[in-house]
């Protein structure tokens, strides 16, 4: 390198923009080859830190994926999305479990439909309402969330977080079961007949979870549904569909779900860790 270096006076003139063009070019050409002179350019440390923090964040912060962008468009803020993505039941393992149960039911229904007509989709109708309950059981709590003790002692903990996550997983599971229902052989209304029982089981599970853990409540209500329905299926097979999914039954499900919601609202505080149940 040449012996010549940019002296402080020249550097100051360069920064103020008062040098004539050839000298500017000389300074720049020299600086691109001389580390010493580059280092002499004064830097505002506040600016430097600020500029660096933007670089740091762009490298490390989670990037918005297609799902987040879609949800952002319908009004879901970024921070809420972060809360939901850490929901255990929104992990792939849970979604795949839900998906495979639904798929199994549909496949079984199709296989049965080859030989028998009408009653083929019963298996689906029996299983579909349980899917969202399985998902809800993985939404919150010490059994499914290893970080539960940290999550549960933050100011966001409590009923709001439980319900946000429950709604998110119920939504996902219902969508999966709904798609499965559309693929079902038999009368078209079968694809929707399971929705009210599913609603009852979900709200019931949440209401019961104000007494027991979410997982215990899910097992209790899911088990109760399966036992009851299987009993009807075995004992009074000929009236199964009208008895379990007929208009009267649907009305009862709706009324019971409303009651469960009322209980849930009254007892919502009990979702909190610091509360003795």
């Amino acid at each position: 390198m040449s012996e010549w270096h940019v002296d402080p006076g020249l550097l100051q003139q360069y920064e103020q923009g008062v040098l004539n063009p050839s000298r500017v070019m000389a300074v720049e050409a020299h600086m691109s080859a001389c580390a010493t002179c580059r280092g002499r350019v004064p830097v505002d440390i506040t600016w430097l830190t600020g500029n660096w923090s933007v670089v740091f964040d762009s490298i490390h912060a989670p990037q918005a994926g297609p799902v987040q962008r879609l949800l952002a468009r319908v009004g879901l803020p970024e921070h809420r999305f972060r809360l939901l993505t850490a929901t255990p039941a929104l992990r792939w393992s849970w979604l795949i479990a839900t998906l495979s149960v639904g798929a199994l039911a549909v496949i079984a229904a199709w296989l049965a439909a080859a030989g028998e007509t009408g009653g083929a989709s019963r298996l689906f109708l029996v299983l579909a309402p349980v899917l969202p309950v399985v998902a809800v059981s993985g939404a919150y709590g010490s059994g499914v969330d290893p970080m539960h003790e940290i999550t549960g002692t933050t100011p966001s903990a409590g009923p709001a977080l439980v319900l946000w996550r429950a709604v998110a997983v119920i939504g996902a599971a219902t969508a999966l079961a709904g798609v499965a229902g559309l693929l079902l052989p038999g009368p078209g209304w079968y694809a929707a007949a399971w929705l009210l029982p599913a609603l009852l089981l979900c709200t019931g599970t949440l209401a019961l979870a104000t007494v027991w853990s979410l997982q215990a409540a899910a097992v209790a209500l899911g088990g109760l549904w399966l036992t009851g329905v299987c009993w009807v299926l075995g004992d009074r097979s000929e009236v199964f569909i009208p008895f379990v999914f007929g208009p009267i039954a649907q009305f009862v499900y709706l009324a019971a779900a409303a009651a469960a919601v009322a209980v849930l609202i009254r007892r919502r505080r009990h979702f909190d860790l610091g509360e003795s149940r």
Binding site: Y14, R38, V41, V43, L48, W52, V55, F56, I59
Partner: peptide
């Protein structure tokens, strides 16, 4: 190594800024 990027940034951001601003 993030630390290396920080060092590189702190070493070069200043003169790059002065030159770009012209």
């Amino acid at each position: 190594q993030t630390a290396a990027l920080r060092l590189l940034h702190h070493r070069h951001a200043g003169w790059l800024r002065a030159r770009l601003r012209r």
